[in-house]
Nucleic acid binder design. Structure first.
Lengths: 219, 219
DNA sequence: AGGTGTGAACACTTTCACAGCA
DNA sequence: TGCTGTGAAAGTGTTCACACCT
């Protein structure tokens, strides 16, 4: 299959989100124009993005909402549910654990780990927070494929190395460090300080005449 | 000033983070090569990014770490501290409130708002969580410039409209919606579900032969 | 008429490669 | 010699414009 760019994949997620909303309104058909408006992009962009994966619309009519949802779920790999573990039971970990949108998309957090003896043994929903000594064994035996790293920066690389050895294939990293990972591993970083600095830059440079536009995309 | 691209601004943040690390090691001078290695980009990219803002290095020697930190702080607008308010005192709000890296970069959360009567009045550090009826007045009187939105998706647009009217110039949005904002406002979205779906896509398409590379940048 | 699918034009970013300074 | 700063080249992503289908 052709190589798809990251921005394109990101937009697919956003199309999916909007389509689910449309389905609830309820609307059964949507044009690239309308979809673009709701996502904050252009009609041509929507059609181009979809065209990489096949042809989903009907000329003169638009896209069938339910069909396109099904197609996007298949493309994004959301038909199956992924085994996810969370490493780091601090505040960020807690926020992610309760994050409704993960469940909704089929990401089910199955295990939570921490090194803090005060956290180990706590009950989080149906789960018990486990110690890091159980990490590798648990990841392997539960067949975890994706790990969310929500530990302090200093600990993140060590955790990464361990989960990689335990067969994990994807990492969502919240620690503000540039993780070293094998090139077959899928890594996504969420860096809130960086986003804030982007805002700071936009505001500061506007004051002195510049312009960045910050995001302007959806979220 | 010239228009600077978003990826460039993002990398400036990452250079700054690595430089602070270098300063602690301690290292006083660094080459574009070394900086690139630590950030996960190329030496040419580092030099090009910096060149948009002036000339900071010494040929044959590299960059003075302390000088470059100072230059980046000035460029990113981090010399002043920004007045920040948090709307939404749920789990995500709590995680952000305690996020050390915000403080460190001069982002000081000065006010927290929620609509839940159980949360209003709670003490968070030195702050008291306030009701949303105080929102506009407080933002105006405290001169808040940046608002972090950590409310449910349904409430996010209404909050946005209100804070915009209260003179806010930048928004960091954690709600999974495409916010409608005036074009002079700086908006950044953090969308964790989208990042997860990016991982899902990468893993699923690898299985069937594709490739995205996910992030591979720093965080 | 209305709206998709898509090659071709365009715009933007990254990489190359080298002149030039310490 | 070593490493920066930077035009020029290459590569990527976005927009245009229109043929084509319903």
């Amino acid at each position: 299959m052709k190589r798809i760019s990251e921005p394109t994949v990101g937009r697919l997620s956003m199309y999916l989100r909007v389509l689910r909303q449309l389905e609830r309104e309820p609307v059964s058909t949507v044009s690239s124009e309308e979809l673009a408006r709701r996502v904050g992009t252009t009609a041509a962009q929507v059609r181009k993005d979809l065209s990489f994966f096949g042809t989903f619309g009907t000329r003169g009519r638009g896209y069938d909402v339910a069909d396109l949802i099904a197609a996007l779920r298949r493309i994004l790999g959301l038909e199956r549910s992924w085994g996810v573990a969370l490493v780091g039971a601090g505040k960020i970990g807690a926020a992610l654990f309760g994050y409704r949108d993960f469940e909704r998309q089929g990401f089910h957090i199955q295990s939570v780990f921490d090194i803090d003896p005060h956290k180990i043994g706590q009950h989080w929903g149906e789960l018990r927070v486990r110690g890091d000594d159980e990490l590798e064994d648990a990841l392997l035996s539960e067949g975890i494929e994706i790990v969310i790293i929500a530990v302090p920066a200093e600990a993140a690389q060590a955790v990464t190395d361990r989960v990689v050895r335990a067969g994990v294939r994807g990492i969502l990293n919240f620690a503000p460090v540039n993780l070293e990972v094998p090139d077959w591993l899928a890594l996504k970083n969420v860096n809130m300080a960086m986003e804030m600095e982007g805002l700071s830059y936009a505001l500061a440079s506007r004051g002195r005449g510049g312009r960045t536009g910050a995001d302007k995309r959806s979220a």
